[in-house]
């Protein structure tokens, strides 16, 4: 089955067994309803046990699940009147970044997001959700447009990182990300970032500077992907699990570190089990953010955003060293 992950195998197996028994009951005269009832009770206990005790590595697996809803899925469920706008006006139209104008509960907004595919064909078109410079520049063009028309910006983050390719370097991938960090910190409209899957490094941050950062329960956001971290730190990419355990990159850990605003719960077993229901869990969080942020004057908003990032960092003062 495509729809299963290693850690949830016991649940899937038990479900299969119950289905088999039900089928068997239908076809024969033997009454197994009490058996089935018992198994169903066991299933709900098992589900609780497994889904409420996921370790960070389990969450990473869900975040990477091919069937996990993408930016365009949430855009479809959360907004009306979405019109996709293409191109950076400089070089091309990056399929790994989508954007456009839409309405959220009647309010005009600008939406941008990183977009991966769910199958190989779509992934090739979307470059596996790994943007080139033109993706960041398209996003910035749309964000500037949003500022002009005083529309809040909603940004969906879901990337394994900016694309590490030759053309990306030639066209200034570093500058395109840097420029977005710079400009996003000064935009005079509310920016709400939603991390919906993977959030790797500068590639994620490139559309991820905002007033509120909300993260889906089974998403991660990190300075580096688990595999690259393992390769760098221990010269062994297969130690990714160890990197995840060390680096505190999953949503609950980020919440604990005070890096993110809201941790958005997911439907049982992960967002892919019911994307539409998942969107409905996001809606009130988004609505509350918009309500809060739209109350600020533009200068106030920019100042508050500055303070938000200004205070991130952990350090101390060593008088002894200072005197040397």
């Amino acid at each position: 089955m495509v729809n299963e992950l290693e850690f949830e195998k016991p649940v899937i197996e038990l479900k299969r067994k119950i289905a088999e028994l039900k089928e068997f009951t239908k076809q024969s005269d033997v009454d197994l309803s009490s058996e089935i009832e018992k198994l169903e009770a066991r299933l709900s206990r098992l589900e609780e046990e497994i889904y409420e005790n996921m370790d960070p590595w389990d969450r990473i697996q869900i975040a990477r699940f091919p069937e996990r809803p993408t930016s365009l899925d949430y855009i479809q469920y959360l907004f009306t009147d979405f019109l996709e706008l293409h191109g950076d006006r400089v070089y091309g139209d990056d399929g790994a970044v989508v954007g456009g104008i839409a309405k959220f509960e009647g309010l005009p907004v600008t939406v941008i997001g990183q977009q991966r595919g769910k199958d190989t064909k779509e992934n090739i078109r979307r470059n596996f959700g790994m943007p080139h410079p033109e993706g960041y520049r398209k996003a910035m063009r749309l964000m500037k447009q949003a500022e002009k028309f005083k529309r809040p910006i909603i940004s969906f983050i879901d990337t394994k990182g900016a694309y590490p390719g030759k053309a990306a370097e030639e066209r200034g991938i570093a500058e395109s990300i840097a420029r977005n960090l710079f400009e996003m910190s000064g935009l005079s409209v509310p920016i709400i970032c939603l991390i919906i899957g993977e959030g790797a490094s500068g590639g994620a941050l490139g559309i991820g500077v905002g007033d509120h950062i909300h993260v889906l329960e089974n998403s991660w956001f990190s300075v580096i992907s688990p595999e690259s971290a393992a390769a760098l730190l221990w010269k062994d990419a297969s130690q990714a699990k160890r990197a995840v355990a060390t680096m505190k990159m999953t949503a609950p850990e980020l919440k604990e570190l005070g890096i993110i605003d809201e941790l958005i719960p997911e439907v049982k077993g992960g967002a892919h089990k019911d994307p539409r229901a998942q969107a409905e869990l996001m809606r009130p969080v988004l609505a509350a953010s918009l309500k809060e942020l739209r109350a600020y004057a533009p200068e106030e908003l920019v100042e508050k955003r500055y303070e938000k990032y200004r205070k991130i960092g952990v350090f101390s003062t060593l008088e002894q060293f200072a005197r040397q």
Binding site: S185, G186, L205, V209, S222, L254, L257, Y306, G313
Partner: peptide, 14 residues
């Protein structure tokens, strides 16, 4: 320093 390092990019740019 994990995520704190990443956020320094945003802080300095801001």
């Amino acid at each position: 320093e994990g995520i704190y390092s990443l956020m320094q990019m945003a802080k300095t740019s801001a």
